[in-house]
Design a protein around this nucleic acid. Structure first.
Lengths: 205, 205
DNA sequence: TCCATATTGTAGTGCTCGCTACAAATGTGG
DNA sequence: CCACATTTGTAGCGAGCACTACAATATGGA
């Protein structure tokens, strides 16, 4: 059997370029022409490799979350809820203003409201944002079980709160806020979690 | 001199309908066909009255902020920084989940990232969001001068923080969070400002 | 060497976009 | 009742959209 003409581009490299376009212009604002030019390929190659514009977005989102996985694990491995929050928010302040990427977070910039033809894109992004919140909730539940968070603390509410602050920072970054501005916001938020922490945590590790 | 055929629609009513379409679908996701249908007019009437799609958005934004002006003044008239924040965030939790409007905030849902042809729409929205932050900053500066906020408090940072939380809540609301969820976030954030308040404020009002 | 298979580049497809030309309609002032 | 000014509805403009038909090209296997 024959194998066929080999593809001239690297799938993941092309996906990185597409990610950047979606990140900067949003799903609806990104055109196939912009995407193909950034990816260095022609439309038929794009459609053969990814299927559709929306499927390309999903592939880019998969790669986006996969890229942050290692960092997320490092964040969640911090010994206390307060330290988890601090690493998380300070990391976000840095990442969202990293000049080697578009500002903000792809899961927000991708599109909060879309036209009727792409109505499920906002859902897709929201579902991926919810994953981070869930990871935080689990971590905070563990913190409470370990006596690190106060008895009165609500892990789900805290996770929602941290998640909301992250989103707010993302929007700030996308409209031009610099790292110091984001770090100031992070600092205030970190104290909120600190406030609900037990003063002398068990710190069993 | 003659006066001409009278217009058959009310400008502000039509603007309200347009506002809702932009709110629900974003600037790029809203089509002229959707707008004219919601406004109950035909394209030539829209263009004669507002000039262009972008000018229509700006008119809708003007109306949006004008509508909230009275509420903002009521919020800012609260006696302490803590109370200002509480009224603000609890009001936001309620307004952003009010079923008589699309969820979230028009200044966020309108569009964070846009295609190259509408690049200044995100700027326009960011500028309007910045106004709220500025109002909060002024109010917090006054609070500090009145001895209501601690000496160590940074009014600008606090205003940025509250502004970021509002934005985060807006995104949460747009992806389906209910009022209780938003109120929980608000509650945590309010405690952050409380923490920077002087325990027995001068409360000179 | 020739076939089978897959990708490539060119050049479009139909469709919807924001926007407008134009003529009929509807009012006021003389 | 006529002349003028403005709006209305119809119909359609060029441009750009996501997407694809097709032929040329490049590989591995027989």
């Amino acid at each position: 059997m024959a194998i066929g003409r080999p593809r001239t581009f690297d799938r993941d490299t092309a996906l990185d370029q597409a990610m950047e376009v979606f990140w900067r212009h949003g799903y609806e604002g990104a055109t196939i022409a912009q995407l193909t030019e950034a990816m260095g390929i022609n439309p038929p190659s794009l459609y053969a490799a990814f299927g559709s514009k929306e499927a390309l977005l999903k592939a880019a989102l998969d790669r986006y979350t996969a890229r942050r996985e290692a960092w997320m694990e490092e964040v969640l491995s911090a010994p206390t809820a307060r330290e988890v929050t601090a690493r998380m928010l300070m990391g976000v302040a840095e990442k969202q203003t990293d000049p080697s990427n578009p500002p903000g977070c792809l899961l927000v910039q991708g599109g909060l409201a879309c036209g009727s033809g792409s109505a499920n894109v906002p859902f897709e992004l929201a579902a991926r944002r919810a994953q981070t919140e869930e990871q935080l909730r689990h971590r905070f539940e563990r913190a409470k079980a370990e006596g690190d968070l106060a008895e009165a603390a609500d892990p789900a509410a805290l996770a929602r709160y941290v998640s909301a602050v992250i989103t707010g920072m993302s929007v700030m970054a996308s409209s031009g806020a610099d790292r110091e501005a984001l770090a100031q916001v992070a600092e205030v938020a970190i104290r909120s979690v600190e406030e609900q922490s037990v003063r002398a945590p068990i710190a069993a590790n």
